[in-house]
Amino acid sequence: MEYTSIPGIGKKASRFGVGTWPIGGAMWGGNDDAEALRMLHAAIDQGITVIDTAIDYGYGHSEQLVGKALKESGQREDIILSAKCGLAWKGEEVYRDATKKRITSEIEETLRNLQTDYIDVYFVHWPDPAVPVEETAGAMKELYDAGKITAIGVSNFTIDEMEAFRKIAPIHAIQPPYNLFEREAEKDIFPYSQKHNATLFLYSSLCRGLLSGKMTRDREFREGDIRKDVDPKFQQPLFDQYLAAADKLAQFAQSAYGRPLIDLAVRYVLDQSETGIALRGARRPDQLEPLSRIEGWKLTDDDKKEIDRILAETIDEPAQPDFMAPPLKKEVLES
């Protein structure tokens, strides 16, 4: 297992982390709780020390499963728990709410769900332009000073938003989307994190399954799955283009290294970020299979040039992950 560090946290952080959005069930077409618990135990047994969750993943359900697994394992102190705040919901519609009131109440529910008395890394899930950054950052600083969180993180923030936040509170970790198909973070987030010594938590490393090597054109998504009619990469004609790119990348991975596409996808994230953590969503133990195959090798500069060539010739207009951004509180409550 490759490890990295997070400022202020003494535990070793595995560079492969488990993302638990899928096991919350909501927006992923449901979930099998028993399988999810087996997956979490398998992750811990394999030496994964980073587990990433959020209260809006299944409206607390993901957190509850993580808390149950950690309680059963007895290894809470070995695990770096990454959780998030700043979102709320009306029915099943999630919206941004990064007020101090929401953050301070939210963490208490998160602590109960996770069956712990502190969070290792607590992220503001999305910036909330309707709330002064001084209020949001100030609330996080109070939690940090009180010892309820060991490190402060921000997710999906721009450079300007982080600069404003850092005037009030430190930032120890940054969480942007990043994978072979979604590489915008390379331009400014990567150098910013290095300059300010903030660890990268890179989510969606398999691009919602497009880089798993198992996605097919006839794949049917269940109702409630964001890939069914929300994620533009899974809508035609883009879907065919991304599948073609994945197929060519799979051929390259096999010819160059004798490895499947999923290994190439995870290795790419690790190599590009150097010390970042690749978060991979999983529901079942078998989905952790690439773990043993991503160590002991690295991509060369020529490999990366070939990857760029494949992407340029197969995808006309790359889609950004903007669709994941939740609406503002006012937009939802007034609808």
Rank of each mutant, 00 (worst) to 15 (best):
I174V: 15
G60S: 05
L238T: 13
L328F: 01
D145W: 06
E317K: 15
L70M: 14
V124W: 03
I307Y: 03
Y257V: 05
K90H: 14
I294P: 01
P327W: 11
Q64D: 05
Q64A: 11
R222M: 02
A246C: 07
N113G: 10
A164H: 06
I315R: 01
D160Y: 10
V124I: 14
L311V: 12
K298G: 12
L87Y: 01
R102H: 15
I226G: 05
L264Q: 08
F252S: 09
Y268R: 11
K71V: 11
Y144L: 15
K187C: 10
I44L: 14
G281M: 10
A246F: 04
A54Q: 07
N156G: 08
F16Y: 07
P132E: 09
A278E: 10
K148Q: 12
R259F: 03
K167A: 08
S205Q: 03
P232F: 00
E92S: 04
Q254L: 15
W21G: 02
F165T: 00
A256W: 13
A325Y: 13
K248L: 10
A34L: 14
Q64H: 11
P132T: 10
P127D: 08
I79G: 01
E35K: 11
R102K: 12
L264H: 11
D302S: 06
V18H: 08
S5E: 08
G60Q: 08
A245M: 05
E182Q: 15
I80V: 11
P326C: 13
P290Y: 01
A173C: 09
G74T: 01
K101G: 15
R183L: 07
E184A: 15
A265V: 13
K12T: 02
I9L: 02
E289G: 09
V18M: 11
G258C: 13
P177T: 04
F323H: 08
Y3R: 05
I23A: 06
G19P: 08
D120P: 07
G47Q: 10
T110H: 02
V154W: 12
L288W: 06
G67E: 06
I9P: 02
K214I: 04
K11M: 04
R76K: 10
L37Y: 06
K233Q: 15
M162V: 03
G86R: 02
Q64N: 07
R219Q: 12
Y57L: 04
I80P: 05
K84Y: 12
G258Y: 00
A245D: 12
I168S: 10
A198G: 08
R183W: 04
E77Y: 04
K305F: 03
P321D: 14
C85V: 10
R219W: 14
F157I: 06
R96W: 09
G24Y: 06
E163F: 06
K68V: 02
R227F: 00
A83R: 14
T53A: 05
D240P: 04
